Each structure stands twice: as C-alpha cells, then as structure tokens.
Amino acid sequence: MRAKNSKKLRDDALYGWLFASPWVIGLLVFFAVPLISSLYFSFTTYSILQPGEFVGFRNYAELMSDSVFWKSFSNTIYFVVFFVPLSIFFGVALAMLLNMNVRGMSIYRTIFFLPTLVPAVAMAVLWMWLLNPGFGLVNGMLDVIGIQGPAWLGSETWSKPSLILMSLWGIGQSVVIYLAGLNDISQDYYEAGDIDGASWFHKMKSITLPLLTPVIFFNLVMGIIGAFQQFTLPYTMTGGRGTPADSMKFYVMYLYDNGFKFFKMGYASAMAWILFIIVMALTALIFYNSKKWVHYQGE
C-alpha cells in the first residue's frame, strides 16, 4: 500500500511539472538567463556587435564619474520624490469622492478611469499641445485670469513638474484599487463610529485611512518601481534628447541610449544592476517599516 501511494505521488508530481513546464521554461529562458547574462555583461565591454572583454568593475567606476548619469539619476529621484506621494494623496482623495453614494457615480468613475486607456505616446502628444507656451489650452486659460503661463516643457524649471502633472492625469488604475480597498472595509466599523458620535473626519482618520493602509502599501511599492522606470512620456516628448538642458533625461532613457544607441551594452547592464539594487533596497526598507503603519482588519 505504501509503495502504491508513493508511486501515485511521483506520478502526480510528474504530471504537475509537465503542466507547469511551459511557464518554467519561459521563466528560465526569458527571465533567469537574461538576468544572469546581464550581470556578466556589466563586467565586460560587450557591445552587441562585439563580444567585448572582461573589465571587472570598470563600468561601475566610470558611471560614478559620468555627469550625465548623475543628471539622469537626480531627475529620476526628483520625479519619484514628488510623483509617488502626490499620486497616493490624489488617488486616495479621488477614491473617497468616487465612493460616495451619489446618483450617476458609475459615470464619474468611468471618466476618471478613461485616461489610463490612452496610449502613452498619444497622451504625450496631447499634453504637448495642451502645454504649448504659445497656443496651448493651459496657458490660454491662465491668460484669461491674468496669469502669464510658463514655457512648461521648454523650461528647465517647469519640465519635470509638467511631467508629474501628466502622470497624475493617468492615476485611474490606482484609484480603482483604492476603491476596491474602500469597499472591502466592513461597515461595522463605521456603525460603531456613528454610535460613538464620531464625525466624518474622525471616521476617516481612525477607520478609513488605517484600514486602507494595505492598499496604500501596495500602490506605494508599485508606484516607486514604476516611477524609477519612467521612460515613454519624456522620451516621446523630447525625441529621446531629454531637453531642455537634460532636465528630462531620466535614468532609463540614458540606459536605453547606452545600450541601443551607443551600443555600450556592458555599460547599460551596469546601470540596470545599479537601478535594480536601488529599487530592491527601497522595497526592502518599505517592507521592513510597513509593520509600523500598515494595519489589517481583524488584527
């Protein structure tokens, strides 16, 4: 009997691996092998056209003295520091507004979600027209109230805030996640708050926000990862140049330039691993600190 059960377990395991093999093979071929290869290439002068030679940490040392690298890194940090908190603040605020029991709310939810369906390139073209300093709609509306609008994308000072504004326009996906989190909060907590005479503000402060922290935590991690990989919008709007004065040159844009324009694939691989380490370190830090501020229902 024991031998029969053992054979059945082996057969079940074999069938399980057979069914899972397409995903396992795909994971190895498309993720594991490129990951290990990029780590090796980061220590070489590999350039796609030539195999290159092993140079140790020279690529990393050159990056530390590369002014464009530091400029792209500072631009990316600027975007992460401002966009991620603002996206969380506006995302939660919009979700709370869209969670109200108002007639026609499904229409409003659809309107706020629609920008996420617009392709990034089309969104870049649209906002380039809206923020045009000469005939753009935004500056036109500012002129009506007597304010002279800035050059926006043509200004070194306003280019990154303009990009943050565009990115905030497309936070509908995170708003949907916040809405799901709000609907998951038990009404028993609010009823208990009503019995205690709690105001709307106190219920939001003591019930809604604490119980929404798991969703905020998820969007925080995903937002940081996505912000560090900002590429499509600035690349489309500047034609890959990062103008003006490299103020729109982001980390992944410079990585792309090194890998596919200058064919310095070893150099680009080193940049990719530095980015990977930074994102992993920040993610680990957030996970470590989450115990202090993330609250789950029933705990």
Rank of each mutant, 00 (worst) to 15 (best):
P119R: 01
N219E: 05
Y256P: 00
T283Q: 05
W70Y: 11
L63A: 04
Y40S: 07
M265H: 06
M64G: 10
M141Q: 09
L179F: 15
P51Y: 15
G136S: 07
N289G: 06
W293V: 03
R2Y: 08
V252M: 13
Y46G: 03
A32S: 09
F54Y: 10
I88H: 12
A13R: 13
L27N: 14
D184Y: 08
A61M: 11
A32R: 04
P133Y: 07
A227G: 13
A120W: 06
G266M: 11
I36T: 12
M123W: 01
V252Y: 08
G240W: 09
G226V: 09
S162D: 04
H202E: 14
I286Y: 00
F83R: 04
Y178R: 02
G239N: 10
L211W: 07
F276N: 09
G91H: 01
N59Q: 08
N219H: 06
S269E: 02
L212Y: 03
M204T: 03
G193L: 04
L18D: 02
I145D: 13
V221G: 08
L163V: 12
F201C: 00
S21G: 00
M100E: 11
V121P: 05
P133F: 08
F79K: 08
S167E: 14
V252D: 01
L233P: 03
V215W: 11
T208D: 03
N5W: 15
G226Y: 10
E191M: 02
V92G: 02
R10H: 11
M222Y: 08
V84Q: 02
L163K: 06
K264G: 06
V55C: 00
K264I: 02
T283I: 04
H202L: 15
G134R: 15
P115V: 05
I225N: 15
E62D: 15
L117I: 12
F260N: 00
Y46D: 03
L114T: 12
L39D: 00
K205S: 04
G134A: 14
L179H: 10
I145N: 15
L212A: 05
Y267V: 05
N183V: 09
V92L: 07
A268T: 13
F82Q: 03
L255G: 04
K292S: 06
G26T: 05
F83Y: 14
S42L: 05
G16H: 02
F218Y: 11
A120G: 11
G136C: 14
T283V: 09
M123P: 00
V125C: 07
M105T: 03
A20R: 03
L86M: 14
I145F: 13
G223R: 11
K8H: 04
V24A: 13
Q229G: 01
R2A: 06
L28S: 12
F250S: 03
Y189A: 09
F31W: 15
G91P: 01
Q148V: 13
F250I: 10
Q148F: 08
Q173P: 00
L182E: 06
F90D: 03
A32C: 10
L255K: 10
W17L: 14
V215Q: 07
A180K: 01
F263C: 01
S155Y: 04
S65A: 01
P150L: 02
K203E: 14
V294F: 00
G154A: 00
F201V: 04
A61F: 13
Y190I: 03
G298D: 14
F83T: 08
D66R: 07
V125H: 10
I278P: 00
F89H: 09
W293C: 02
M280C: 04
P85E: 07
A198I: 05
